[in-house]
Amino acid sequence: MTVDIDDTGGVPVARIKGEVDLKTSPRVRKALLDVLKKRDTLIVDLSNVDYIDSSGVASLVEAYQTARKAGGQVSLAAVSQPALRVLQLARLDQVLPIRDSIESASAEIAE
């Protein structure tokens, strides 16, 4: 599992790739919260997530809540089907902003 942070311009993007589980989710959590120490907006690209468990989803929720408290925004972009199923199970698809693409998430945050 890898988390690449692209903070070269505009809204920062965290690209998560691979399987997010009990072993790897602490790295996801740390990477997302580290970005949010410096920035108040973040797009999380979930297009290459093959599997995410509840600890991974909990990390996304925590990042979202951290950004909101700071008056910012975390959006999920291009959510893969396995990730979407887990979000739907906990009805988090109705809570977390989910956008089709990084571009649409970015445009929305820029408004």
Partner: peptide
């Protein structure tokens, strides 16, 4: 896992 992560996981499962 961090306590905050565990708290969210527990509440998610209660929701489920």
């Amino acid at each position: 896992l961090d306590r905050s992560t565990i708290d969210i996981m527990v509440r998610m499962k209660l929701e489920v």
